[in-house]
Amino acid sequence: MTTSRDDAAAFTWIFDRHRHAVHAYFLGRVADPELARDLLQETFLRAWRRLPEIAPLEAEQQRAWIFTVARNLAIDSYRANAARQAAEAALRHDAATFQTTVAGPHRQAELGERLAQLDAAIRRLPEDQRVILSMATAGELTSRQIGEALGEPAGTVRYRLSQARKQLAAALDLEEPA
């Protein structure tokens, strides 16, 4: 495919608009940041190859197209067993790893500890809840947008999000508003 400046600009716009949501989806699915990045790259590589088809679409239609690719890639990845192995490896990381990576030397130790607890609790969530929570927080998508991306009713998304929050609140000994 020959690259024009217009193509590059159109694709960059699509990438910037959807990358956080897609990355959050993969983070929830595979729980491994490195694999999530690889799957993100593969998703957008496919989008690039189909740019003439995608570029004219509305943003929501673009998201639907991209998430169809992302879901298929996640399934393929599972079939190859790579995702499961990576997720298991990621689950074996202890809380200190997250604390060191995220908190850094200048952040409060207490905050790092709480984040490590939260991260561990998120990893223990059922996958469907973890994906939705990740998309809602790191992806900053609404329940309706998550539902459209995953092909599920918004009500189901809200219910699973609520269940996830309750489990996290219990795990961290926090009060969750009713």
Partner: peptide, 21 residues
Amino acid sequence: TSQAPNDLDQLLAAWARARRL
């Protein structure tokens, strides 16, 4: 203040910032 957030929304926001691409 040096207290870590004890609110789930604040903790989730911090987690999301740390995990974002």
